[in-house]
Design a protein around this nucleic acid. Structure first.
Lengths: 108, 108
DNA sequence: TTAAATTTGTCATTTAATGACAAGTTAAAT
DNA sequence: ATTTAACTTGTCATTAAATGACAAATTTAA
């Protein structure tokens, strides 16, 4: 998906023929703020990801990819992080997993 | 670098034979809070990345990779994001570059 | 055993995120 | 052209999260 998260939501919404007010109601937020979200002027609150998934019957795992992918990309772009950053993320995720495994082993 | 950002700082610090109090002074923060940072109980504030780079004569670009890599990895791990997320990040960074989104204010 | 170093707990303060609503603009329909 | 719904923008009070500060407890090393 080559778009910001805001653009992604707008696409979903317009495809389904919903107005800002209608979708905002489903997401339990103000239509003015949803407008800002779609236009990249506010962040979508991760607490509403489940409501978004329900509204459009989306696979939640894929939605997370879209959402967090957007978040990380914005930061990387804003701070001009080299693409090497992503390799390091992969390493570090594995490291965190390995530590967690060790902790779990100690428990039992 | 296979470690959390806190572990990374601790390594730098102990290699140089500094105490928490000494490094904390260089970073303009409380030694108790630096301890929490090294132990992963608080976040290192990005406003201090420059001070950290100075304290240890680090390449700033590499430090950013380490720092943001850590941040993203923690989130990915906490939310169990699939590794596909990183592909999406790459796509989205390119997308942001292509549409030349106005850069956020960068503090360093 | 004692002094320095580190860790932990707590809380007031600062800072950022959010909700809410008014006012403005755009777009479509008649 | 006027009206109406849809959308955008601006602002501000409130809420929630991050941070600073310091006391107290624990660990480490001399």
């Amino acid at each position: 998906m080559k778009a910001t998260f805001g653009e992604y939501i707008r696409q979903l919404r317009t495809n389904k023929g919903l107005t800002l007010t209608e979708l905002a109601a489903l997401l339990k937020l103000d239509s003015a703020n949803l407008s800002k979200i779609e236009n990249g002027k506010r962040e979508f609150d991760e607490k509403r990801l489940d409501k978004l998934a329900n509204a459009f019957e989306l696979d939640f795992e894929k939605l997370k990819v879209e959402y967090f992918g957007d978040q990380f990309a914005k930061k990387m772009y804003a701070y001009n992080c080299s693409s090497e950053t992503l390799m390091v993320v992969e390493e570090k995720v594995n490291y965190l997993k390995s530590i967690n495994v060790k902790q779990a082993e100690i428990k039992f």
